[in-house]
Each structure stands twice: as structure tokens, then as C-alpha cells.
Design a protein around this nucleic acid. Structure first.
Lengths: 143, 143
DNA sequence: CTAAGCCTTCCCCTACGGTGGAAGGTCAAG
DNA sequence: CTTGACCTTCCACCGTAGGGGAAGGCTTAG
């Protein structure tokens, strides 16, 4: 199977497949006499798995770890459970940040309904008070 | 005021200030005879405003738009209200995505408690069903 | 005179997941 | 023989918000 066919069957582009190969997510396939990549049919499943794992919120590095364990002949379940915990922590942190930003934006929106432009003497009277409420990135612990 | 002093007063680095200048967020200041940037004192407020707007969830491009309106002598309130609506829409979309990812990760975590590694015959029995549930990026509308 | 502590410009690097394009090789059909 | 569709490699770039460090200039105190 040439790269174009694999790409179509797996729902990605050929560029993406070469990228995955460079990242070590997809093994280097055989080559035809002409130098074309010649994939075994089961690679389709591998690429689909990569897409599924991405859709579940894993970064490609993590997908790579899972695949590497699998390629070593082990069941990656334990490592996957660890990765899930990691990702859940990250995702929840990001959710908290975004909720803070959202409430800040909502506060601005509600101020916008009451503040007359004439009261706006600094750069923007709507925005200025923001820093006092949502210090998302604390300036203290700089590594 | 030289760049180091402005940096310290505004709570950013000198690198950041030069970056803001390149992005058009801070006007090019006068220069001393020696070629050093020499800022007017009120620039401190401008840089602080940039930080506040960032903390409220605006991207630097958007802060630039607000400042440009202000520099034109207008009150940017109307545009700010528009920007707030835009950002709210984006932030809420991102929140929905992240919530979907989170519930997907939770589903995997709960499957991990029941699935024995032996039942895991494909790449990872925990992950595979994901695509059916959380198709975050629809493959159809590709521009 | 010289060393320290500022400042200058310049270019590259980070993470993330690819995308775009140039220059050229391969393969099958007409 | 040529055209067109496919493939190859390599290099560069997208966005975001800067950071790292080199090589050199300015200023001031000792």
C-alpha cells in the first residue's frame, strides 16, 4: 500500500504520515524498487489508533509512549492509566484558567453596559481593574 | 527613563518591551545621545494596561487594536465590547472541547479499572472507542 | 585606564502538529 | 515520447509570546 492509499484509508494526509514517521509513531515501511514507501495493511489500524488517542486528549508524545510499550510486546494499560491521570490534571488546570478568563470577560461585558465612554479616562476603563481579579500566572515562582 | 527602569516599573522584561515595540503595542521612544531608548513616564501605564488586558484573556493583537483606537483619540469601549464577545465565544468553545476531552479521559480511567490487560487485543482497549464519542475536530469543513 | 553594569542589534530557539512549496524521480496509459 | 498522477527529499513556515545568547557600544565609578 502506497502512502496515498494509507492516508486516505486512515483519514490523514501523506504529509502527516511522513511526519508521524519522523516522530517515531509509525515505523519506517518497506520501499518499492522505485523508492516509494510500501505499507503493510495493518498500519491503517495504527494510524487510526493515533487519531483516536489524539481525540481522547493525548499529545503525540504520549501516543508514542503507548505505542512503544505495545511494540515492546507489553500491554500499555498501566502506563495509559498514568497518562490519563496526568492529562486529567493538566486539562483540569486549563479548565480552571479558562473559567477565570471567562468570568473576567463577563465582568468586562457587564461593565460595558453601565460605563459611559466619558468615564473612560485611562486606556480602557473596562479592562483596567482586571489584574486585581484574575492573576492567572503568578509572577513569584519564576524558575 | 531607560528600558530597564521601565521594565522593572511595569513588571516585564526589557526583551518583552522591545518585542512590544516591534509588535506596535508601544511606540518607538526617543533615543539618548548614546542610542538608548528613553521612555516618557506615562508609558509605564501603557505597559501595565497591556498586562491587564492580557490577564483578562485578550491576545496581544487585540490589545493592539484597543490601543490603536485609543491612540486615534477615540474611546475604544465599543470595539472592546465586540472583542469581549469574540473572546467569550472562543473561550466557551474551548471550554466545551476541554470538557469533552475530560469526560473522555474519565471514561478511559473508569474502563482502566475493569479491563484486564488480556482483553486488550488491539493497540489499547482503553482508548480505541474514543473516536466514536469525542470527535472534537470534524474532518469535513477543511478550508 | 579599566571594569562593571547598563544598553544596542541580530539571529536562532521553544512547544505543537503539522502545512506549503520547490526540485526532481517513478509509473502507467495514450 | 509525453503527460499526469503519484511519489521522493529538503527546507521553510504558521501562531503565540517571548527567551537565550553573541558581539559590540555607552556610561560611570574607582
Amino acid at each position: 500500500m502506497l502512502i496515498g492509499e494509507l492516508a486516505e484509508r486512515a483519514g490523514v494526509t501523506a504529509k502527516t504520515l511522513r511526519f508521524y514517521e519522523r516522530q517515531g509513531l509509525v515505523p519506517e515501511p518497506e520501499r518499492t524498487d522505485g523508492g516509494y514507501r510500501d505499507y503493510a495493511p495493518e498500519i491503517v489500524e495504527r494510524v487510526r489508533f493515533i487519531k483516536d488517542a489524539q481525540a481522547s486528549g493525548f499529545a503525540l508524545v504520549q501516543v508514542g509512549e503507548i505505542l512503544a510499550i505495545r511494540d515492546d510486546g507489553h500491554a500499555p494499560c498501566g502506563h495509559v492509566a498514568d497518562l490519563v491521570d496526568q492529562r486529567l490534571t493538566e486539562v483540569e488546570a486549563r479548565l480552571r484558567e479558562l473559567r477565570a478568563v471567562r468570568s473576567e470577560l463577563r465582568a468586562i461585558a457587564s461593565r460595558a453596559e453601565t460605563l459611559a465612554p466619558d468615564d473612560c479616562d485611562d486606556y480602557c476603563g473596562l479592562i483596567a481593574p482586571a489584574a486585581a481579579i484574575a492573576p492567572a500566572a503568578p509572577p513569584r515562582p519564576s524558575p
